[in-house]
């Protein structure tokens, strides 16, 4: 267990635990919103530059306030609930997609002693809560009472559960090397970044993580040109915004886990730890964004074949080689 940093001590000074929880939740929600604003701007700039155009430049310097203007417009939209939807599922799906991911942000260690609470099983908790995303997608798809949404949901569920397995298998060699399931311990144990000894595991993890967040080239569930908008077809206004927030938060969590497991977390010369952490995380997110505008979308059977016949055997071979090397 680590010594709590100033932030956790700040939260512990509240006498009433409910107020401490409310303050911590407020801080996390604030981070999520600012992160989403910044990431949407980054995505629009990256995609624009890759398509030889400029992207938003009008609102604010370099178009930085464009997202704020878009969010204001989105919040102002009327929340339309279509008549034919199955109301309980339809209304709870965005919350179900967003809540576990927002809760997971509290588990990520940003610096050597910046962590809200350090369990000794944070990695398992992260994987467990990411699996809850699948249920949210199903609820959205079925609750919309719409064939396109249901098709998108079925494909998304199949894709998500297929790519969970290479994800888990790619993470296992790291756990074997550090003999710990705690993200904080794994990041602390990296005197050299683990990507140097486990490049294949990093590649498999990154590909599976891109598939888990339903980003291109694995965005069949939201296939904009095929299924209208996939499982969130019937969602408009801020409800769609919540799904979007959930997707960006998922990207941050997945890339944060990748930096903590493979790139050394907060370690780096000169700059303070958390600056390095965010540089690495947003660097990986920028790579994910470049993926989106580089690769064409995978067809559904190609996607499943890729997961089951290529990624899983590769991950298993990697695990076997790691075990043999560690035992020698």
């Amino acid at each position: 267990m680590t010594a709590p940093h100033a932030t956790t001590q700040f939260f512990h000074t509240f006498d009433n635990p409910w107020i401490a929880i409310a303050a911590a939740t407020g801080a996390m929600l604030g981070f999520i919103t600012i992160n989403a604003l910044w990431l949407i701007w980054l995505e629009r700039k990256v995609s624009a530059r890759m398509q030889r155009r400029y992207g938003p430049t009008e609102v604010g310097p370099f178009g930085l306030l464009q997202t704020l203007a878009d969010v204001v417009k989105l919040v102002g939209k009327e929340l339309i609930t279509p008549d034919h939807v199955h109301r309980p599922l339809y209304l709870i799906a965005p919350i179900l997609a967003f809540a576990p991911l927002a809760a997971l942000l509290s588990l990520l260690p940003i610096d050597a002693d910046w962590v809200f609470h350090d369990f000794d099983i944070t990695l398992v908790l992260l994987l467990a809560f990411s699996g809850l995303n699948v249920i949210a997608i199903f609820a959205a798809g079925w609750g919309s009472n719409n064939k396109y949404a249901l098709l998108g949901a079925v494909r998304a569920v199949a894709q998500n559960i297929s790519y969970e397995i290479p994800l888990l298998l790619a993470v296992l060699p790291i756990v074997l090397m550090t003999r710990s399931l705690s993200l904080h311990e794994i990041a602390s144990a990296q005197s050299y970044p683990f990507i140097l000894v486990q490049p294949l595991a990093f590649i498999i993890y990154f590909i599976s993580a891109t598939a888990e967040t339903n980003r291109a080239p694995f965005d069949i569930p939201e296939a904009e040109s095929e299924l209208i908008a996939g499982f969130h077809t019937e969602y408009s206004g801020m409800r769609f915004g919540v799904f979007f927030l959930a997707e960006f938060t998922n990207m941050v969590i997945v890339c944060a886990v990748a930096t903590l497991l493979f790139l050394g977390g907060w370690k780096g010369p000169l700059l303070p730890g958390f600056v390095w952490f965010f540089i690495k995380v947003y660097g990986l997110i920028a790579v994910m964004m470049v993926f989106r505008w580089t690769f064409p979308r995978l067809r559904f059977d190609q996607l499943m074949t890729f997961a089951w016949t290529i990624l899983v055997p590769l991950a298993l071979v990697n695990l076997l080689v790691t075990i043999v090397v560690l035992k020698l």
Binding site: V124, L127, A128, F129, G131, I135, E164
Partner: peptide, 29 residues
């Protein structure tokens, strides 16, 4: 906490999803 995480991972993330899948494929709903 480990058993709690395993319960979430296997039961909610695996078994419930499998039941939902089977239900969708059999159009029971």
């Amino acid at each position: 906490p480990f058993v709690a995480a395993m319960q979430l991972l296997i039961y909610l993330g695996g078994i419930t999803v499998a039941i939902v899948f089977a239900m969708m494929l059999s159009i029971a709903m």
